[in-house]
């Protein structure tokens, strides 16, 4: 089979937008005239990109995951308290945090699929539960400290042959991205998108709709835990570390041209959307725009991106519906040729 590059609908504008931002950075910021600057950007963006990948799975299959920000906070706070600066506890605490993320995702998925509560509500509830539990447990000020071994993943570098020093977070991000792309190219990944498009069809084709949905939520929870580990290392322990990350991840996914409601969009574009968002914030920072505007900018982006998707979709449809493909048109090329 010949390989041909093919972008899902909505991907190309997302990549162009990213490219423009990166060029903008190169012009405005002296640090971005060499690769190291971009590597630092990628390192900074890695947690959000990972969250966006998780969020992508849920959105493309027709849901929302609002719980990931609170999950990140909970993960960091739990890790700090359990490790308490004790290096030897690092490994099992990391496993525990990952397990916790998986469990939260699993609960989100089970409540959504078995109790038939809309995912927006389920994960909103989960957000509040996690927030409350974290506050109760810490009393507002997290105790304990992370070990150097734990923080290495968020801020340390690995010695990679040929490339030299590469941040751990970038390596982790890239492995997750590659795995996600392979997953989405496979049968299960395609079925996941089909669930977001029309779950009745998937069910009538013998697919397990609930299991696919459950898988999406579980992956989102797991990836949120990974993001928590990176953010804990990068930013340190605080009870605000995950604040607003769920909306930033959703903004990123939408910016990547993924259709809200599911059924269309690529995981690469979702990750690119997250990188764009981070690059945009960096650019605004370099231009001297107040950091207070961050959420306002995000708000505008999410509305514009969705409006573009709806209007753009309409325009595209008009372009493609006529001429209607017709059986009787003999000049049309059969798909098999």
């Amino acid at each position: 089979m010949t390989w041909r590059p093919r972008l899902a609908e909505g991907t190309a504008p997302a990549l162009v937008f990213l490219l423009l931002l990166l060029i903008g950075l190169a012009i405005v910021g002296p640090a971005y005239s060499e690769p190291a600057g971009y590597l630092a950007l990628l390192k900074r963006a890695a947690p959000l990109m990972i969250l966006a990948i998780g969020q992508y799975f849920v959105i493309v299959s027709g849901g929302f995951d609002l719980s990931v920000g609170a999950l990140v906070t909970a993960g960091v706070v739990i890790a700090a308290r359990l490790i308490g600066g004790n290096e030897s506890a690092t490994a099992w605490v990391i496993l525990l945090v990952l397990g916790f993320g998986l469990l939260v995702g699993l609960i989100n998925g089970l409540v959504t699929t078995k109790l038939l509560v809309p995912s927006f509500i389920v994960t909103l509830g989960m957000l509040l539960v996690l927030d409350g539990a974290t506050f109760l447990w810490t009393g507002g000020a997290p105790r304990g400290a992370l070990s150097d071994g734990f923080r290495m993943f968020g801020r340390g570098n690995a010695d990679v042959p040929v490339l030299g020093e590469v941040p751990w977070s970038v390596l982790i991000l890239l492995s997750i991205l590659v795995a996600a792309v392979l997953f989405m190219r496979g049968g299960t990944g395609r079925a996941l998108v089909a669930v977001g498009d029309n779950e009745a069809t998937v069910r009538m084709s013998g697919g397990q709709v609930d299991r696919l949905r459950l898988l999406a939520f579980t992956l989102s929870g797991l990836l949120a835990a990974v993001a928590a580990i990176l953010l804990g290392g990068f930013a340190g322990v605080s009870a605000q570390v995950g604040n607003g990350l769920e909306f930033r991840a959703i903004t990123a996914v939408v910016l990547g041209g993924v259709l809200l409601g599911g059924g269309r969009g690529s995981v690469v574009a979702a990750a690119a959307g997250a990188l764009s968002l981070e690059a945009l914030f960096t650019l605004l920072n370099l231009l001297g725009v107040s950091g207070a505007l961050k959420s306002a900018v995000q708000g505008v982006i999410i509305i514009v991106a969705v409006a573009y998707a709806s209007l753009g979709g309409g325009v595209r449809q008009r372009l493609r519906l006529w001429p209607k493909p017709r059986d009787s048109v003999q000049t049309a090329q059969p798909a098999s040729s």
Binding site: R190, V193, A194, D197, N198, A200, T201, V202, R203, G263
Partner: peptide, 9 residues
């Protein structure tokens, strides 16, 4: 359209 195809795929 209802349960035979996923139209956007």
């Amino acid at each position: 359209k209802g349960d035979g195809l996923a139209l956007r795929q």
